[in-house]
Design a protein around this nucleic acid. Sequence first.
DNA 1: CAAGCTAATAGTAATAGTTACTATTAACTC
DNA 2: GAGTTAATAGTAACTATTACTATTAGCTTG
Lengths: 128, 128
Amino acid sequence: MEAIKQRYSKQRETILEVVQSTLVHPNADWIYKETRKRIPNISLGTVYRNLNQLVETGRIIKLKDESMVRYDGNIGHHDHFRCAVCGKWYDVEMIDQAIIKSFAEKHDFQVESFHLELEGTCKSCLNS
Amino acid sequence: MEAIKQRYSKQRETILEVVQSTLVHPNADWIYKETRKRIPNISLGTVYRNLNQLVETGRIIKLKDESMVRYDGNIGHHDHFRCAVCGKWYDVEMIDQAIIKSFAEKHDFQVESFHLELEGTCKSCLNS
DNA sequence: CAAGCTAATAGTAATAGTTACTATTAACTC
DNA sequence: GAGTTAATAGTAACTATTACTATTAGCTTG
């Protein structure tokens, strides 16, 4: 069980920058298209491979959308709200560690991570 | 915007019974195999179509696992704990309506549903 | 700082879960 | 019972993701 050697790669750093530069919670294809603006011949496989690595090393977060995976460059803890009308994902704050702690004590489960997802209608869709 | 006419079908009722009869939070393939024990020539497409309809009419719940969709026949509100070791999903109780209400008031979002997913190690995997 | 090792890449093929299509069957209406 | 059309079985197609392979390029070490 030794640490995986990880070399620097322009592709990986660019992908990370792309994910960190947006609030849209993009999927792999969006990230691919965006990264291609900077590295025109980057391969889609490279994008997927690096996104997985970035998740494994904790530099980005993985979200499950309807039929695909989305990514979030905001790795501080937060929850998500998905607007069912416009499909946008919002970062929100809601659950704190205290709630989780009391849960872990009640059950005999060891909680490593948790994710709250809310769905409904966002402010701007309510006003239109 | 009129209600969709929905005819009775043995296939759909059997699929519903299968989902309601288990706690394993099965995916489409499991449900297909299980339903085939009762209707040997049922088609996989029929299973998918009916699962989607059952979700739309609120008779079952849809969960997003790593790479596929899982279903839950328990439609009362509850949260989910996924064991990262054995992959099992557990129904748990944690969030109540009060937490959500205070959230909806803080932001100007209208919350229609929410889902808390915890991940970690379950009791039986901790003891082995 | 050049040689060697191998992680990472581009490009492509393959896979898995799911949806779409089509001719046929079977619930419901009158 | 005849007509209408939702639902079906079987199959093809689609989409997101992963696997494969020859080549490229970081990093290490002498």
